[in-house]
């Protein structure tokens, strides 16, 4: 029995879209200050899982508890309070196109933290931009940033509210190997510096190996293997998990 504090507890979670059963009764735990990587093929329901966690989607059955609270049972106010403890880094960064980097970072802060002075807001923004290594981009528009820079700013925006859980949706998708490595380091730095627990959604095994304490392989709507990288992959008995490893290995 694991004695570490559970921040997320998922039990028998089910979600379908029409005739497609995406999640078929999945169980998963995320522990405090742990980096958990959820691996799976595209369309396997990885993103659905974390979208249910922040209340963007609602499960058909099962339980999703975050900090002991059943997400589906929360009212709007409670859900918003919970969302402030969760940072969600989107696959395409989801930076607001019409706002500068400064305004992007300011947006959640001024709406959720009252009575901040201009100086305090600026200090917080500068500190976070320094943290992600992009202090010079403060007045740039998202369209002027590269894919990797956008990801970093996206992470900085989610960190501005000091979340306790970070959710990374495909953090390395569409990036070159060097930038992938930088983003992986950033994920580790964020955990070190902000003491966050994280779920990293990816199909990139290199990213998983570098960032994850544990891996959970989601295939056909169910977790086929959960454990450390060494426990899950080299000794994989499930053919699909094995082929997932082989495919990534050959491609890398």
């Amino acid at each position: 029995m694991d004695q570490r504090e559970r921040v997320v507890e998922i039990r028998g979670l089910e979600k379908s879209f029409g005739d497609l059963d995406v999640l078929q009764g999945v169980d998963l735990d995320l522990y405090r200050e742990e980096n958990l990587v959820v691996l799976g093929k595209s369309g396997s329901g990885k993103s659905v899982l974390i979208k249910i966690m922040v209340g963007l989607l609602r499960q058909d059955a099962g339980s999703m508890k975050v900090f002991g609270q059943e997400v589906a049972a929360l009212n709007k106010k409670e859900l918003n309070a919970l969302r402030l403890k969760i940072g969600f880094s989107f696959q395409n960064s989801a930076l607001y196109d019409s706002m500068t980097v400064r305004e992007n970072l300011e947006f959640p802060l001024v709406r959720n933290v009252k009575n901040l002075t201009r100086g305090e807001i600026d200090r917080r923004i500068e500190e976070l931009l320094d943290g992600v290594g992009l202090p010079q981009s403060i007045n740039q528009m998202p369209s002027e940033l590269s894919g990797g820079q956008k990801k970093r700013i996206g992470v900085a925006r989610t960190l501005i509210l000091n979340p306790e859980i970070m959710l990374y949706d495909e953090p390395t998708a569409g990036l070159d190997p060097i930038t992938c490595g930088d983003i992986n380091n950033l994920i580790l730095e964020v955990r070190e510096r902000y003491k966050t627990s994280s779920i990293v959604i990816t199909h990139d095994l290199a990213c998983a190996k570098q960032t994850g304490d544990r891996m959970a392989v989601l295939l056909d709507g169910q977790f086929k293997a959960i454990g450390t990288f060494e426990e899950v992959f080299p000794k994989a008995t499930d053919e699909r998990v094995k082929s997932f490893y082989d495919y990534n290995f050959i491609n890398s």
């Binding site: 963007l56 969302r83 959720n112």
Partner: peptide, 15 residues
């Protein structure tokens, strides 16, 4: 904004 998940980003930042 919808297709690039910017609306979802607003929602998850409690806006």
């Amino acid at each position: 904004m919808k297709v690039t998940e910017q609306i979802d980003a607003m929602e998850v930042s409690a806006t």
